[in-house]
């Protein structure tokens, strides 16, 4: 693996893994704690539809993906917020629309569809210098948003109504978070893949959620899990000659189940069972001492 690092494409892939893993999993904490999981999936598919439309008409795919993400955020936000029908129904309709558009545009593409399929599965080994610049800017944007609005994010996570009652611009920050999710998806989905990026947003954050009651620690753990998933996936892809994007997701799922198993929050996790066993052993020792 290390001898491969002398190649530019591998250096770029490692950098993209670190930036992508960190940015996606940091934004994932917002997605998980604000209960936006389905909104994010919907936006990932919107980005995919936009990018394929870009390929179809010769527009820059990233730019089109960004426009579609913003459109989706603009539609989803109000619908999920104060729709006249249930938010999950509204989301399901927009999700199916975006999925339908993706397949429609894909079908309309003439000739080999390699470029479009690359958008679906991603191609971390073909990341260019300009891609890295966009990724770095997005990473800084995500970090800046979280640091600058940390206390507001904390309050909105707790209760949006209370946040608004305290005079916090809850609505603006909520929509800002949606916009940022869209931006992150757009920036990283060509390298990680339109179908797979959302797993990288949800899984590391969901794993971190199992392990801590501290929001700052959750952000740090999530970023570590995201970067580990990407680097681990990249390494496994090299060793076993399999698609990197798919392995990245599998690694992130494995991390999630490991976190679930050792979670101090779960009643049936290994950690809790171990604590209970220790408690029982301790009780038995105490009984023995008291009885002898």
């Amino acid at each position: 693996m290390f001898e491969l690092l002398q190649y530019q494409f591998m250096q770029n892939a490692v950098l993209a893994s670190v930036l992508g893993g960190a940015a996606c999993s940091l934004i994932g904490v917002l997605v998980i704690t604000l209960n936006l999981s389905f909104i994010g999936t919907c936006m990932a598919h919107a980005a995919l539809a936009g990018a394929i439309l870009g390929l179809l008409f010769g527009f820059p795919p990233l730019g089109m993906a960004f426009i579609f993400c913003c459109l989706a955020a603009g539609m989803i936000g109000p619908l999920a917020d104060k729709g006249k029908f249930r938010p999950d129904t509204a989301l399901a309709i927009i999700f199916s629309l975006m999925l339908g558009l993706s397949f429609l545009f894909l079908n309309m593409l003439s000739g080999p569809k390699t470029e479009a399929l690359n958008l679906i599965w991603g191609s971390i080994l073909t990341v260019t210098g300009s891609d890295l610049v966009i990724m770095a800017i997005t990473f800084l944007l995500v970090c800046g948003f979280i640091l600058f609005f940390f206390k507001e994010i904390q309050t909105i996570i707790f209760n949006r109504q209370i946040a608004a009652a305290l005079g916090i611009p809850a609505q603006i920050i909520y929509y800002g978070a949606l916009f940022l999710i869209g931006t992150t998806i757009t920036s990283f989905f060509t390298s990680i893949g339109g179908m797979l990026i959302f797993s990288l947003i949800v899984n590391p954050a969901a794993a971190a959620y199992q392990l801590t009651y501290s929001l700052p620690k959750m952000f740090i753990l999530s970023a570590l899990f995201g970067v580990s998933s990407c680097l681990g996936g990249l390494w496994a892809a090299y060793i076993f000659n399999v698609p990197a994007g798919a392995v990245i997701i599998i690694v992130s799922v494995l991390i999630f189940f490991s976190a679930l198993a050792v979670s101090p929050k779960g009643e049936r996790s290994l950690f809790t069972l171990w604590c209970k066993c220790r408690g029982e052993i301790w009780d038995k020792k105490l009984d023995y001492k008291l009885n002898n």
Binding site: T33, K151, E152, F158, A163, I168, Y213, S214, K217, K265
Partner: peptide, 25 residues
């Protein structure tokens, strides 16, 4: 019950509106 927020953090939220954006307690 898994929410990553402690009691002291929730109580402190009371000052966040007055503090305004970008300022920390």
């Amino acid at each position: 019950n898994r929410l990553p927020l402690l009691v002291k953090e929730v109580v402190l939220m009371g000052v966040y509106g007055k503090l305004g954006l970008g300022r920390y307690p």
